[in-house]
Design a protein around this nucleic acid. Sequence first.
DNA 1: CCGGACGCCTGTCGGC
DNA 2: TGCCGACAGGCGTCCG
Length: 271
Amino acid sequence: MPELPEVETTRRGIELYLTGQRIREIVVRNPRLRWPVPESLPSMARGRTVASVNRRAKYLVLDTDAGGLLFHLGMSGSLRVLSKPGPAATHDHVDVCFDNGQTLRLNDPRRFGCLLWLPHPIEAHPLLARLGPEPLGSEFDGDYLYHRSRGRKAAIKNVIMDGRIVVGVGNIYASEALFLAGIRPGRAAGRIARRRMHTLAAAIRQVLEAAIAQGGTTLRDFVSSDGQPGYFSQQLNVYGRRGEPCPVCRDPIQARRLGQRSTFFCARCQT
DNA sequence: CCGGACGCCTGTCGGC
DNA sequence: TGCCGACAGGCGTCCG
């Protein structure tokens, strides 16, 4: 589910509630996520105070003086802050309860997400150590994308979705960014000119920033931390629109399978 | 190193 | 109406 804008929307939604709060206890109802929630996690986190709420790629980190709680929302996860937590519903796997009575509740039907306790330095953890730059950071630009793509025969869509190249570009925004840049998703990354890579890097930035500004995309079941759906789905140009007219040229949008993922593009506008 | 396929889960939707 | 297969926003891992 969540791509970078959804995770960032969640981060912004919870940080004001959680920063400075002390963890009273963590209730793990179902530890069987992508990786099992460690049995020791509640005791490691108990009594710690949240110093900051950070995002790296699609990971959320509640950082404390002693280590951090690392969340990933997988395909179907969501986090909500509850001031008066009711009884846990189906797929409410974990509650992080704070001294002030608030509860951070993790719901994840498909259980592709995770919750781990990471000692400092957080970035040294194997899950984070090999990640590429943030797409909204200063390290990521057209020159970087161009250099990292030289010699690669893989489809450009697969390359921009590769977290070792750049993090946070998921299946929806990959199609959307390539549409904005006028580049075919299946084009070999190593054969794209530097100038077009600049256009693509700018398009990735643009689509992610626009989605964050709108509170993320809602498809099926995404809700941000306050329970409100995002509104970006109304602005998708190609994703999920097979057969619909291209918003630019009116040719029907094409759908393909690329790297086992649904891919949408306009055959006339994207070369 | 690279590229491609697989699997982890549950829920939903379209077709018959 | 019910069943069954395909598919869904991620991503680590394995294989050639």
